[in-house]
Structures are given as structure tokens and as C-alpha cells.
Write a protein that binds this DNA or RNA. Structure first.
Lengths: 135, 135
DNA sequence: TTAAAACCATATAGTCACTATAAGGTCAAT
DNA sequence: ATTGACCTTATAGTGACTATATGGTTTTAA
């Protein structure tokens, strides 16, 4: 299978596949006589795994770690669970931060309705005062 | 005021201030005889405004836009409100996406408890199957 | 047969908002 | 005289790609 076919079948673009190879996430495939990359079903599965991890918003470093577990399957799986638990708390704290942000933005927005001049705009005035320091 | 004092007073680091200058967010200050940047109160206010916008997670491009409104205060402020409304919907869709992601991760995590070998791990198996395509 | 299109290759630069490093000049205090 | 804190510029690194440039190969159509 050439790179274009693999890309279409998994739904990524070809540069991304080369990028994953360069990053050590996808093993370098054999080459055809003309130098084209020749992929096998194994590559396709590995790439699909990477894509599903990315959908779960795992970083490439986390994916590399999961791959090390896959490649040595007789370890205890506690580390995998820990990785996922950490990722879940990461996602949760992102959600919390964004919800606080949303509240702030909505209250700022409530300070102005259209039809004024910028000079009298409650939104710009609202940003202009208040604390500039992060927590 | 020199760059270090400004940085301390607003709570950013000096490179960030130079970066904002280079990006056109902070006007280039006059220089002392030795070439050191000499900031005024205006700069301090402008920098504080930028910081508050960044806390609200506005992009540098959005901040540049807001500054254009500040610098020409006799326009209608509808554009400011629109910018903020767009930003609020952006934040909301981030929240929604992360909540869906959290659900997915939690259900994946439920598929395994510790004490197994990686080979039998429900988490890795769970990532290994399912769709790899983004919507 | 030839020419266009679709494909493949590598290398390099750009995105965003910084942060870090290198290499050096200036100033106050010891 | 030298240490340390400050300032300067320029350049590279972060993460996960995406885009561009330049050129070779293969397939398809006129």
C-alpha cells in the first residue's frame, strides 16, 4: 500500500503520516524500487491506533508511552490506567477553567448592548479595569 | 521606567514585553542614552490591558482588533460586542467538546481495573477498536 | 507519443504565544 | 577590579501539525 492509499483509508493526510514516522510513532516501512513507501496492514492498524488516541486528545508523548506497553504486553497494566486517569483529570481541569472563563466573559458582555460608541462601551471599559494578574 | 520594573509591576516577563512590541501590540518606547527602553504610564496601562485580554483567552489578533477600536473611540461598539460574542461561542464549543471527550475517556477507563497484564487491559483494547475518523 | 494529472520524494518554513539560550554591553556596589 | 543585576539583540525550541518549494515517477487521456 502506498502512502496516499493509507492516508485515504485512515483519514489523515500524507504529510501527517511522514511526520508520525519522523516522530517515531509509526515504524519506517520498506520502500519500493522507486523509493516510495510500501505499507502493510500492521502499519494501517498502528496508524489507526494513533488516530484514535489523538481523537482522545492524548499527546504524541502519551501515545509513544502506550505503544511501549503494547510492544511489551506482559507488564502489569496499572501504568496504562494511571496514564488515562491523569489524562482524565487534565481534561477535567481544562473544563473547569473554561467554565470559569465563560462566566467571566458573559458577565463582561452583559455590560454593554449595541448602539453605543466605542468610547462608552461597557465591554472595553470592563476589560480596562480589574486585575491583570493570573490568579 | 525600565523594562524590568514594568515587567514586575504587571507580572509578565521581560521577553514577553519585547515580544508584544515586536508583534505591534505595545508601541515602541523611547530609549535612554544607553539604549535601554524607557516606558511611561501609558505603556503600563496598555500592557495591563493586553494581560487582561490574555487572561480572557483572547488571541493576539483579537487584542490587536480591540486596540484599533480603543484608538478610534467614535465608532459604534457593535463590532466589539460581536468579537466578544464570537469568543464566547468559541469557548462554549470548547467546553462541549471537552465534556464529550471526558465521557469517552471515563467509559474507556471503566473497561479495566489494575492488576491485569497489558495484554488483557481493557483500556488498550478499547482504544484499539472503534472508529478512527473525526466526525 | 506526448502531455497533463496525479502521485511520490525530501527539505524547509510557518502556525500560536510565548520561553529559553547565547553572546555581549551597562551600571551600581563592594 | 570584579561581582552581580540589569539591559541589548538574535536565534532556536515548544506541539502537532500544515504549507510550500522543488523535483522525480506513474498513470491516464488526447
Amino acid at each position: 500500500m502506498r502512502i496516499g492509499q493509507l492516508a485515504r483509508s485512515v483519514g489523515v493526510n500524507t504529510q501527517t503520516i511522514r511526520f508520525y514516522e519522523q516522530q517515531g510513532l509509526l515504524p519506517p516501512p520498506d520502500r519500493q524500487e522507486n523509493g516510495y513507501r510500501a505499507y502493510t496492514e500492521k502499519h494501517s492498524e498502528r496508524l489507526a491506533f494513533i488516530c484514535r488516541c489523538r481523537i482522545l486528545d492524548l499527546s504524541l508523548a502519551e501515545i509513544r508511552e502506550l505503544q511501549r506497553y503494547q510492544d511489551d504486553p506482559h507488564q502489569p497494566c496499572a501504568a496504562v490506567n494511571t496514564l488515562l486517569d491523569d489524562h482524565i483529570s487534565h481534561v477535567r481541569s481544562q473544563i473547569t477553567a473554561l467554565q470559569a472563563l465563560e462566566k467571566q466573559l458573559v458577565s463582561l458582555r452583559a455590560g454593554c448592548s449595541d448602539g453605543r460608541e466605542v468610547e462608552a462601551c461597557g465591554v472595553l471599559a470592563g476589560i480596562g479595569k480589574g486585575s491583570a494578574h493570573k490568579q
